[in-house]
Amino acid sequence: MSQWPDTRILDLLGIELPIIQAPMAGATGAAMVIAASNAGGLGSMPAALLSTDQLREELKAIRAQTQRPINVNFFCHQPPVANEQGARDWKNLLEPYYRELGVDFDAPTPVSNRAPFDSATCEVIEELRPQVVSFHFGLPEKSLLDRVKATGAKVLSSATTVEEAIWLEQNGCDAIIAMGNEAGGHRGMFLSDDLSSQVGTFALVPQIVDAVKIPVIAAGGISDARGVAAAFMLGASAVQVGTAYLFTPEAKVSASHHKALRTARESDTAVTNLFTGRPARGILNRVMRELGPMSDKAPAFPLAGGALMPLRAKGEADFSNLWAGQAFPLGKELSTAELTRKLAEEGLAKLIH
C-alpha cells in the first residue's frame, strides 16, 4: 500500500514513484529515460528533434533495457508560414555578430526545425506502444489523438493556465502537467501567446486542481524534496522535474551549458524567444543581454534558430540556448536513478512526518 496521499498518477501510469523525469530535447537520451524508469519513476523521451527512424531506434534501445512504463513526448505546433522579409530582418539584426566572428553573412541560412506530431510519428507509437504519450503546445488533431489512445497509451499535456487545463481535460487528456512560470525550456502555452498570463507553479497548481477532475502533475521550480512535498500539499498527484536532471551524468549537455548551470547567479534566467521563436526559459547569455530576451524580429517557431547556428559554431556559450528553470541552483551532482529515488523518499518523508 503506497504511503503517498494521492496515488492517482501511480495507478494511472503504472509507476512506483510519483516522479516524472521531464523530456528535454537535446539533453535527454535513452540512458536517462532507462535510469529514471528503472528507479521507479517515469522516464520521458523527447521526440521533437528526432526523425521517425531515430525515434524508433531510441525506443528500441530503451525497451532493450527496461520493460517499465516510459513516456514519449511530442510537440504539436503548427508549422510556420515562410516569411522571407522577416527572415532577412532577423538575420540583419544579427549581422554585427557575423562580422565580429568572421562568419560568412551571405552564406545560405541553415534551417532550424522541430517536427510536430504527425501520422508518420504516430505509426511509431502504434508499433512500439509506449505506456505514456505526452504533448507540448496543446494536443494534436483528434484523429491522431484517437490513434494514440487506441494503443492504450495514457495521454498527458502541459497547461500554463487554468483555461488550458480545462481545454485539455475536455479534449481527452488523462492527466495534466501544470507548468508554472519557473519551469525551464519552452512554455507549454497554446491558447494565448500573452506572457502576462503565465503564473508561478504554486499559484497555478491548486487552481488547476480545483478546476479539473483528472489528476494534476506539478512542474516548474521543483528540484528537491521540499518542492515535491509542497506540490502534494497543493493537490498535485505527481511532479515533473527537468532542470535537476541536467546535473546527472546521463544528461547530454554542452560544455557551456554544463558550466552555466554550475556558475550562473540565482537570478540569471529569463524567458526568451531568440533561439527558437517561441518563449522558453534559459540562463542569460550575451545575445539575450544585448538584444533583450524577447524580440519581435525573431521568426516564428522553430525558425529563429537557423540564423544563430553559424554564430553558435564560433561562440557557443554566447549564442546557444542554455535552458534551465529558476530553481537550477538547487541542482546536485547525482545519477538519474539516485535523484529519482531521493526526490521520492525525502519528499514522502516530509509529507508523513
Results as ranks from 00 to 15, higher is better:
52 T>Y: 13
49 L>N: 06
56 R>Y: 03
60 K>V: 07
28 T>K: 01
63 R>H: 13
22 A>Q: 03
48 A>M: 15
49 L>T: 09
6 D>R: 10
28 T>I: 03
15 I>Q: 13
58 E>W: 04
14 G>S: 07
68 R>K: 14
10 L>I: 05
67 Q>I: 03
57 E>Q: 15
14 G>E: 01
68 R>M: 10
74 F>N: 09
61 A>R: 12
59 L>T: 04
77 H>I: 01
32 M>K: 07
6 D>L: 07
37 S>W: 00
41 G>S: 03
75 F>L: 15
74 F>Y: 14
62 I>K: 01
38 N>G: 13
54 Q>K: 15
35 A>Q: 10
16 E>C: 08
62 I>L: 06
9 I>H: 08
40 G>T: 11
41 G>L: 13
13 L>C: 02
6 D>V: 06
69 P>Q: 06
78 Q>F: 09
36 A>V: 00
27 A>C: 14
29 G>F: 06
30 A>T: 08
17 L>F: 13
45 M>Y: 07
56 R>W: 04
64 A>S: 14
49 L>P: 05
65 Q>W: 02
17 L>H: 15
47 A>M: 14
15 I>R: 08
68 R>S: 02
6 D>G: 04
60 K>W: 00
30 A>M: 02
41 G>R: 01
12 L>Y: 00
14 G>R: 14
56 R>H: 06
22 A>T: 06
19 I>M: 06
38 N>Q: 15
56 R>N: 15
18 P>W: 12
26 G>Y: 11
16 E>G: 12
55 L>M: 15
56 R>Q: 12
40 G>F: 09
68 R>G: 02
64 A>R: 11
75 F>Y: 03
68 R>V: 09
23 P>A: 04
53 D>A: 15
9 I>F: 01
43 G>W: 08
59 L>N: 04
7 T>G: 08
16 E>I: 14
31 A>K: 09
23 P>D: 00
5 P>I: 10
33 V>M: 00
20 I>N: 02
36 A>T: 04
25 A>T: 15
21 Q>C: 08
28 T>H: 03
50 L>S: 11
76 C>N: 14
66 T>W: 08
21 Q>F: 08
4 W>Y: 09
40 G>H: 03
17 L>N: 11
29 G>E: 11
14 G>N: 04
58 E>C: 12
60 K>F: 00
21 Q>E: 01
15 I>D: 11
10 L>D: 05
30 A>K: 12
33 V>K: 08
43 G>I: 00
78 Q>N: 13
18 P>M: 05
29 G>Q: 02
41 G>Q: 04
76 C>H: 02
65 Q>Y: 06
39 A>K: 12
17 L>G: 01
44 S>G: 12
26 G>V: 04
54 Q>D: 12
53 D>T: 14
34 I>D: 05
26 G>S: 11
37 S>H: 00
7 T>A: 13
